[in-house]
Design a protein around this nucleic acid. Structure first.
Lengths: 188, 188
DNA sequence: TGCTAATATATGATTAATCATATATAGGAC
DNA sequence: GTCCTATATATGATTAATCATATATTAGCA
């Protein structure tokens, strides 16, 4: 149940509402590490509250719908600290593209190249997003030297995200080049 | 529903039983691309059969429990060919370690290094498995030059899997080194 | 006036994946 | 004789994630 712990981490930074989490966090800072659906966020908040790891204060607003502001509890902080120090099994990657390629021998080269190019485009877009994120963090680092420990860790994390994308892109480009030298299905 | 398509791909290679899929494929060749639980395999086979993408022949065995041997149908082959040519959205990676690091500022360096080292160990083991797999495919390539198109694609896929692991390992080693130069939480 | 966008939460339905367990047969080890 | 392993399939339960929709308010625009 890692989403619960992501939310605990975010609530330890500061109190937030479900809406904040969705719009300010999961669409933003943490989005490269963990994506979460709005429905899942609200349901996870309910579960965290029922476990007493967070509490809720309703903030009445007159110009807008009321907000349910969540705060982490001591029990929640203890749980988070424990989780942060626990090793978790490596997650399984399931990439449709790799499966497609694995079974692609029956397709003509042209179709394979097309597939690789579409993937390349999607990955390039993702890397661009990721780099924008990185620069935002780098800018923060410079303007606020006191919080450097946290920011260094954030940069470390984003470094991997970026490198991972770059590895993928390099591989895709090489794969596309390789396809030109691969004898086609119909040309023995 | 990609598992269904992985199974279609495997059944196009040759007819198989659910048990074959689990023990010969998902524990072996395809395991670095897609993992599947035994229960999910059998249920997916039922679903594929009800969609008429595969058919089933019961093979009576006297020394062992009977086997249900599945074959791909023409409709199944058409579906597979279509799926193989369709671009799918990039899968979301959710790596607990990255989340942990993102929120790790409150932990002492020692705890962070321990976390990284445990991850390193797990990744090293995975890379070793992966390299064994690669060598097996390379050996096949040499002994059977006629099937080279398929084998070249398989190598291409395994190349990425290996490079991805290597990127991860390099990053982990660098991260551990970096931790020694990071001012600790309790040492301002 | 009606439409859209932003703010804010909630719930039903479904899919995908995992875990646990049940059943049945045969062969080999001790 | 009993236990374990390999072969083989099936099902119940649960979790995690996604999709679709519902509801309610205010502000701004055409």
């Amino acid at each position: 149940m890692s989403l619960a712990h992501v939310i605990l981490g975010l609530l330890q930074q500061q109190e937030r509402t479900g809406y904040d989490l969705k719009t300010k966090c999961f669409n933003d800072c943490i989005s490269h590490l963990w994506q979460a659906d709005q429905a899942q966020i609200y349901r996870t908040l309910d579960k965290l509250e029922s476990q007493a790891w967070i509490t809720c204060t309703v903030e009445i607003q007159h110009d807008r719908p009321n907000r349910k502001v969540y705060q982490i509890t001591e029990a929640g902080e203890a749980e988070l600290t424990h989780w942060l120090q626990t090793h978790h099994p490596l997650p399984m990657l399931r990439e449709p593209l790799l499966v497609q390629l694995y079974f692609a021998a029956q397709l003509p080269n042209e179709a394979i190249v097309y597939l690789l190019e579409q993937e390349l485009e999607a990955r390039q877009e993702k890397l661009a997003q990721c780099e924008a994120q990185c620069e935002a963090i780098a800018a923060l680092s410079l303007s606020n030297p006191t919080a450097s420990r946290e920011q260094k860790l954030h940069r470390l994390v984003l470094d991997l995200v970026k490198q991972r994308e770059q590895t993928h892109l390099d591989w895709l480009e090489k794969a596309i080049r390789d396809m030109h030298t691969l004898r086609d299905r119909n040309n023995p």
